[in-house]
Amino acid sequence: MGPILQVEKLTKRFGGLTAVAELDFEVREGEILGMIGPNGAGKTTTFNVIAGTYPATGGEVRFAGEPILGLPPHRIASRGVMRTFQHNRPFAGLPVIDNVLVGAHTRFAASLWSVVLGSARSDEGQRRKRAEELVQFVGLGELRDADVATLSFGQGRLLEIARALAGEPRLILFDEPAAGLTPAECARLAEIIRGIAARGIAVLLIEHDMHFLLPLAQRVVVLNFGAKIADGLPDEVRAHPAVMDAYLGSHATPQ
């Protein structure tokens, strides 16, 4: 299958600091691409630039063949790029199901006028059903109407995923979804991510935990100081000397 996301010479500078340097990679449909790198390597910044939160300093990003750099975040989302955040960012005033429904924002057909006039037959019910399925899918079925403040950290991670999925993405960006989860939760999460990829959705997955990432990803990109220092199959990357040095060296303790 062809690449859905193509990143070419992507550069992002914050003043004098180069957070992302001439980065090249691509993600194919249905593929899980892992992205690793030590703290401050520029992984989250890469996400923020792709998702339109930060403007790029240079380079090109193509989604489904079309350039998306410079588009505002909501436009990029409506094209089918959804994301989760490294730190949970729920909508605190909305119950779980409504958080997920916000994720489906771009998929509602009724115009504002028809809402005001109450004229168009609303797709609200249908969307709600779909959101409920997603809540089930990530395993929050019991908590459908719960206040998000009552969710555990791990449940909050799952909510982020369900919310992103509700946007019917063609590409989903996961920023350290396993961080802070128990081993059991990690195993479930891996299942969920495989399930997502199996639907044909491209997955770009940032992760620190190699034990979690390597079995899951089909290919891995390694960043250090904003630049790509290696990429390839998980086993190749694991054995790459630069990676051992820059990344695994400091995290050598077996987990």
Binding site: T53, P73, A77, R89, F91, R163
Partner: peptide, 9 residues
Amino acid sequence: EAAAAMGVD
């Protein structure tokens, strides 16, 4: 910010 990421203008 999260709203924008979910496609809300």
